[in-house]
């Protein structure tokens, strides 16, 4: 589904990604772990098309298509979704209005009929229940005045509504208490299927107890220095990142 080849990217004149190779098959969950500043979040944002990041080398194919050539909205429409590490507050734009506009744009692109207000509400209520969200939330402005946990839950909620093919979670677990973490993980697990893949960026192994990955990659200094099964995450939890600082395949 997703193929990343020799991806280099920079932000504000600083090279962050220095040659990422990564391949995600349909239905797989990949975790990206690594110390602060290793480039985990940069990878997520580059895949989502954040305009501040400049790709200097390499390519990314999403279902065989050139992802890097698409603007952010096209990526969303073809089925890439990033749950933000720091979701943006948007005063004056109400959640329901925003989400309906987004969903119908995405549906239109995928050749589905646009939902009317009634069908939209039915869908929304179902998804809200899944994520244990209060209905008053719909009439509140996007993320404004939300607690950290509410914001993260809102990201997963949006993902559940937009039903992407690839969900990228950028440190969605940071700052969550255990209850919120479970809700978020349940939300993601409910979406797992043979047609949908996830890239889970996290600093802590804890999340991976709840969202069990197929593959774990360790990112240091802009490169993937080790990949393995879910037991790699446990090893990292045990030993920290320092034992990996000198990459195995270092040139």
């Amino acid at each position: 589904m997703l193929t990343v080849r020799n991806l280099h990217a920079r932000v504000s004149g600083r090279d962050i990604l220095r040659g990422i190779d990564l391949s995600i098959m349909f239905g797989e969950v990949h975790a990206i772990m690594g110390p602060n500043g290793s480039g985990k979040s940069t990878l997520a944002r580059v895949l989502a098309g954040h305009p501040e990041y400049e790709v200097t080398e390499g390519e990314v194919l999403f279902e065989g298509e050139d992802l890097l050539g698409m603007d952010p909205e096209t990526r969303a429409r073809v089925g890439v979704f990033m749950a933000f590490q720091y979701p943006v507050e948007i005063p004056g734009v109400n959640n329901a209005y925003f989400l309906k506009a987004a969903l119908n744009t995405v549906r239109k692109h995928r050749g589905l009929e646009e939902l009317d207000a009634m069908d939209f509400m039915t869908l929304i209520r179902e998804r809200m229940k899944q994520l244990d969200m209060d209905e008053s939330f719909l009439n509140r402005p996007v993320n404004e005045g939300f607690s950290g946990g509410e914001k993260k839950r809102n990201e997963i909620f949006q993902m559940a509504v937009l039903e992407p093919k690839l969900g990228i979670l950028d440190e969605t677990d940071s700052g969550l208490d255990i209850d919120a973490l479970r809700i978020v993980a349940d939300g993601v697990n409910a979406m797992r299927s043979a047609e949908r893949s996830f890239l889970v960026v996290t600093h802590y192994q804890r999340l991976l107890n709840y969202i069990v990955p197929d593959v774990v990659h360790v990112l240091t200094d802009g490169r993937i220095v080790r990949s393995g099964g879910k037991e790699l995450a446990l090893e990292l939890e045990d030993k920290g990142y320092s034992w990996l600082e000198e990459p195995v395949g270092k040139r």
Binding site: E73, R75, A76, P91, A101, A102, V142, L162
Partner: peptide, 23 residues
Amino acid sequence: DAVFYLRSRGLGLAEARHMLIHA
């Protein structure tokens, strides 16, 4: 950042800007 946020959910650039201005 807000423009990017809205675009990352599928809204076009013009639509995103419009939504924010109306807000």
